[in-house]
């Protein structure tokens, strides 16, 4: 490393992350696991849990994810009481029911995904937000069922589907039932596709295996947070199979984008705005927001339909520009401005 790039006071910093000499007290300070710099906890939270010095994206809980992504107070949770049962009598180091109970207690979650509808920039979407804290975000029957219902909800309400992925893969304790959830969710996405409704996927660290081999890879647009692990097989399994070290950056967001399987690598600070812009662009005539407002007897006047879409698209585009200029702070200001945005084309009609 050239001397001019050397971090200041480098000699004062611990070089190795393990067995930290300084204990960082819980609550007030946060130490970045990537660059080891110490950050005032509130600054860290305000920065959406992204390290201000190295840009490391810390995992977010589903609660935190919803807070940064959706308009305040618009999340309407569905299927919150769907929970796993132990159909196979599975026992590893402890029986599966015990593991589930412990997980529920520790994470405060019912399973590894939360679903519902919500407004993002004033646009209603069907949401599935995964949570790594529950058995590594693994997909068993509950995740499969809830994601499928969320997709079906999107079709029924004719609104876009937004999925936030964080998952180590399928849940082994539910064995072949878990595997079949891949087919189930993908089949639902085939219907969403037939209904010409968009599926936007956000991949966060980590997004691997069964979930990636199903709905995680099936977005019309796939956005990834920087440096997230994304792939099918885990890096350890690949190393064991090919018996050689993996190249640097392998299976990370930028690598996956470079190979053509991710559309956009987007920092967390710009995620919400990017989603809002996309939702505005990927509309088409099949979504609720548009069809519901068509004047009755639309069949008799086929030409105005096109006229209707075109000016609206223009207006939307300018509006989006206006909002993206604003800082990506969540909160009431954003919500208000976005709501206004959707209101405007309506009023113009």
């Amino acid at each position: 490393m050239p001397w001019y790039r050397k971090p200041q006071f480098s000699s004062l910093r611990p070089r190795e992350p393990q067995e930290s000499p300084q204990r960082v007290p819980d609550g007030l300070w946060h130490r970045c696991p990537a660059c080891l710099s110490i950050i005032y906890a509130r600054d860290f939270t305000d920065n959406l849990k992204v390290c201000p010095s190295c840009g490391f994206h810390e995992k977010l809980s589903s609660e935190e994810r919803l807070a940064m992504l959706v308009d305040d107070g618009t999340f309407d949770e569905c299927d919150a009481n769907v929970s796993s049962i132990d159909a196979l009598g599975f026992v590893d180091s402890k029986p599966y029911p015990e593991r589930l109970a412990a997980m529920k207690k520790r994470s405060g979650l019912v399973d590894a995904v939360r679903c519902g509808t919500s407004e993002i920039g004033g646009q209603r979407v069907s949401l599935a937000v995964m949570d790594f804290a529950f058995v590594g975000g693994s997909m068993g029957s509950v995740v499969g069922e809830k994601v499928t219902r969320a997709i079906e909800r999107a079709i029924e309400l004719r609104i876009p589907m937004l999925t936030v992925v964080t998952s180590g893969g399928a849940r082994m304790q539910e064995s072949t039932y878990s595997l079949m959830q891949m087919a189930k969710t993908s089949a639902a996405l085939a219907r969403l596709d037939d209904a010409r409704l968009p599926h936007i996927v956000i991949l966060t660290n980590p997004s691997t295996a069964g979930v990636m081999a199903s709905y995680g890879s099936l977005g019309d647009v796939i956005i990834a947070e920087p440096d997230a692990l994304i792939g099918f097989a885990g890096p350890r399994v690949i190393e064991q199979t090919i018996r050689q070290k993996l190249p640097r950056g392998f299976q990370r967001s930028e690598f996956v984008k470079e190979h053509g399987f991710v559309d956009i690598v987007c920092e967390r600070a710009h995620l919400r705005d990017t989603v809002i812009t996309l939702l505005g662009l990927l509309r088409g005539p099949h979504q609720a927001g548009i069809c519901a407002e068509l004047p009755t007897g639309e069949e008799e006047e086929p030409i105005p339909a096109e006229e209707r879409v075109a000016p609206q698209g223009k207006k939307r585009a300018t509006k989006v520009k206006a909002t993206t200029k604003k800082p990506a702070k969540r909160g009431s200001t954003q919500t208000k401005s976005s709501k206004k945005r959707v209101g405007a084309p309506r009023a113009s009609r």
């Binding site: 049962i85 029957s141 509950v142 499928t148 189930k184 639902a188």
Partner: peptide, 8 residues
């Protein structure tokens, strides 16, 4: 496929 899965 829709009906495969066990949950309560």
């Amino acid at each position: 496929y829709r009906r495969i899965g066990v949950f309560e």
